[in-house]
């Protein structure tokens, strides 16, 4: 597929925002937030998570040809994972904002609100991943690993952000959060490696033979029917060489996982170091998501193998 940066930023940013909220709520369950000043910090962290999701939502509008009609996209939630995501994302932002506001106003019931936020957060991860995993003939995406990867990468980057936030606001939580971020980053690396191995072994179910229905071992396309470009030749192929694709794979493995993991093992995680870690990891995950789209091989490409 041709990767769209609008969707890349949408999925990376909301994943990080979701992970940040989950990390903050885990801190609350772990005993943080007993004092009023600690509650203000949770409120601020929650607000940052909302901002990440809002930026992702903003990016998603750039994917639409008719953004002014975006409100219509909530209509078909019975059948469309995309429609479900369109509902789940604002709902998650609202529940995250409600949790933050309850902390800011020193109101009770934040654990209940947070628990609701966790449920909506899980639903949002499911919707986002299923948009891709439900397209069965995009075999690179049609796997439970897509969901596992979206969850783990979101949690890893969000927990790194939480460690960064703690390093400037609540230093006593930095070691715990940095450890959690390290473990999540390593788990995300393992799951992503598993999907890379799976995808390398995939055998395309569609062939030129099934695409045109002719059972002959040797078929060559002589003309795709036009000599210019078309939507079919632009939208479904990344247009880069296999070499470039391999390079980007190593870039995202190193920047998204290996370097952040190494930095998170540092004995003294200062704010500057954690800021560097978060930035490198987010950049690496942008590269990862680019690769995720580029690697998916759409069967329609079988019909566009030769201009003339």
């Amino acid at each position: 597929m041709q990767p769209a940066f609008s969707v890349i930023f949408l999925t990376v940013l909301i994943g990080a925002g979701q992970g940040l909220f989950l990390a903050l709520f885990a801190c609350e369950l772990g005993g943080f937030g007993a004092r009023p000043d600690e509650r203000m910090l949770l409120a601020q962290g929650g607000a940052i998570a909302v901002v990440f999701n809002a930026l992702g939502l903003l990016a998603s509008f750039f994917h639409l040809g008719r953004p002014e009609r975006a409100w219509r996209a909530a209509a078909m939630w019975r059948t469309s994972w995309l429609s479900r995501e369109v509902i789940a994302l604002p709902l998650f932002m609202a529940s995250c904002a409600a949790w933050s506001a309850a902390h800011a106003l020193q109101l009770p019931g934040t654990r209940l609100l947070g628990l609701f936020g966790v449920l909506v957060c899980a639903a949002l991860f499911l919707c986002t991943a299923m948009i891709y995993a439900s397209l069965k003939f995009l075999q690179e995406w049609a796997s439970p690993l897509t969901l596992v990867n979206f969850v783990l990468m979101g949690c890893a980057s969000g927990t790194t952000l939480a460690a960064l936030f703690a390093s400037v606001a609540a230093v006593q939580w930095v070691p715990t959060l940095a450890w959690a971020a390290l473990l999540l980053t390593l788990a995300a690396l393992a799951a992503r490696a598993a999907s890379l191995i799976r995808n390398a072994r995939l055998k395309p179910r569609s062939t030129l033979q099934s695409a045109i229905g002719i059972r002959q071992p040797v078929i060559r396309q002589r003309s795709q029917g036009f000599m210019g470009s078309s939507y079919n030749t632009r939208e479904f192929f990344h247009g880069k060489s296999a070499q470039a694709l391999r390079s980007i794979k190593w870039v995202f493995l190193v920047a998204g996982f290996v370097v952040p993991a190494a930095l998170l093992t540092s004995a003294e995680p200062t704010p500057a170091l954690l800021l560097l870690t978060a930035l490198i990891q987010l950049a690496g995950l942008v590269a990862e998501r680019w690769f995720f789209f580029a690697q998916a091989n759409h069967p329609q490409n079988l019909y566009y193998q030769a201009v003339s």
């Binding site: 040809g65 008719r66 995309l82 397209l135 995009l138 079919n232 939208e235 759409h298 329609q300």
Partner: peptide, 26 residues
């Protein structure tokens, strides 16, 4: 009149039968 030009339907067609209208963005 209802299409928002998200292109998801074209991704979901294995045959590549759908094309976005670049000027109307539907």
């Amino acid at each position: 009149d209802k299409c928002i030009g998200c292109k998801y339907c074209s991704w979901a067609c294995p045959y590549g039968a759908r094309e976005i209208d670049e000027s109307r963005q539907v």
